Simulated scan of single mutants.
Amino acid sequence: MYLKNIHLYSFRNYTDQTVQFKAQKTIIVGNNAQGKSNLLEAIELLSTLKSHRVSRDRELILEDAQTGQILANLTRSYGTSELALILRSSGRRTVILNQEPLRRHIDFLGILNAVQFSSLDLELVRGAPEVRRNWVDTLLIQLEPVYSHILQQYNQVLRQRNALLKEIRKRELANQNDKTESFSSDVSQLNLWDHQLAETGSRVTRRRARVIERIRSLAQAWHSSISGKTEILQIKYLPNVNWIEDDPIQVQQAFLEKIEQRRLAEQQLGTTVVGPHRDEIEFTINHTPAKSYGSQGQQRTLVLALKLAELKLLEEIIGEPPLLLLDDVLAELDANRQNQLLEAIQDRFQTLITTTHLNSFDPQWLKSSQILSVEKGQICH
């Protein structure tokens, strides 16, 4: 997989910029806030249709512009693809593959595969559970694009069910005269949403469990290598709904049983407390929670092992190496971890690295890399 070029139009701080990639490794150098990370973010958007930095498209578009565009040409083992993403300040997007607008965004996913590693990824260890859920979900979207639709369905059911629980709570507090009649109607509606939550939620949790199972051994092998076999990494998936056998009917039944157990709590709180939106992923080093007790060095080793495991898993499943996007992380790693990372990359993955200075790179790396400099949204070759 090789990204040949990318064109940014009214994207972030880029007015009109084309970049041709001429080597397997590209180093993008410049001071902070010049546009280095924005270039990698554009590639991330073509890969997952998501940005890990912002949630609204308005923030991705150049100030005073109404639309922004990202265009790219990608070569894969089966041929060349032309990708285009049009962003609008209204939030409506258009995705185009080989000059054909796609009706479904899901058909755009899985064309360009990339693993992003930035200093923000340390939040994977020390951040809130939502960060770890987003990490697993983003990986799954690349491995199995239909997961994007499954997750969307679950979130839609969750919103509708929460709205109903909120309404039930409001009515109970108001103590209306027709309480008996409305209560009967509410229970009937809630029962319908219970089954939909169980059905969509079981699809999410089963896929998360599978991908954690697959990435665990890869991450453990990398972690052992980087730490010099002095530390043992464990990764545990802690689903909000416990289930044993990966069977759709049994998992749905486990959901319905837990919903029944938490019925009173949900009605009192006016929100859904059962489901994968409350899942957790636990990392432990030598049987100690990495979040609470891991040193900064241990946390960096863990995140590096996870990212290298992502690369390996994507390569195994899609059949060719994905792109690797390193956003200002070399400065965060000590010499040993830098060497482990650079040794793992070599020339196997097309790699784009942002940095504020070049002196942390091996001379051989500099010699074999394309070096671009960025200043105020202008890239010079």
Rank of each mutant, 00 (worst) to 15 (best):
M1A: 05
M1F: 05
N5H: 15
N5S: 13
I6W: 02
H7Q: 12
H7I: 10
L8Q: 05
D16F: 06
T18W: 09
V19F: 05
Q20W: 05
F21W: 08
K22I: 04
Q24E: 00
K25V: 10
G35R: 04
K36T: 02
A42M: 08
L46K: 00
H52S: 08
D57R: 09
R58P: 03
E63K: 14
E63T: 13
D64I: 06
T67Y: 10
G68F: 07
A72W: 07
Y78H: 09
G79F: 09
T80G: 14
S90T: 09
V95R: 00
L102N: 10
R103M: 10
R103E: 05
R104E: 07
G110N: 08
L112P: 02
Q116N: 13
F117W: 01
F117E: 01
S119K: 04
L120K: 02
L120E: 03
L124S: 00
G127D: 08
P129D: 11
V131M: 11
W135D: 00
D137P: 06
T138L: 12
E144T: 04
P145K: 15
I150G: 03
L151V: 03
V157L: 09
L158A: 00
Q160T: 05
Q160M: 12
N162S: 15
E181P: 03
D186I: 06
L197R: 08
R203H: 13
T205C: 15
A209M: 10
A209V: 12
E213V: 06
R216N: 10
S217P: 12
L218K: 13
L218Q: 06
A219E: 03
A221H: 10
W222L: 03
H223C: 01
S225H: 14
S227H: 08
E231S: 07
L233C: 10
K236Q: 12
N240K: 15
V251N: 02
Q252N: 15
L256M: 15
L256Q: 15
E257N: 15
K258D: 05
L264C: 11
Q267S: 11
L269C: 14
T272H: 12
V274P: 10
G275W: 09
H277C: 11
E282F: 04
T284R: 11
K291Y: 07
G294V: 00
S295C: 09
Q299Y: 01
L306M: 15
E310L: 08
L314E: 03
L314V: 03
E316T: 12
G319I: 07
L323K: 08
L323H: 04
L325I: 03
D327S: 02
D327Q: 03
D328L: 04
V329D: 02
R337T: 04
R337N: 08
Q338I: 07
L342R: 15
F349A: 03
Q350I: 06
L352A: 00
L352T: 04
P363R: 13
Q370S: 07
L372W: 08
G377V: 04
G377K: 09
Q378N: 09
I379C: 04
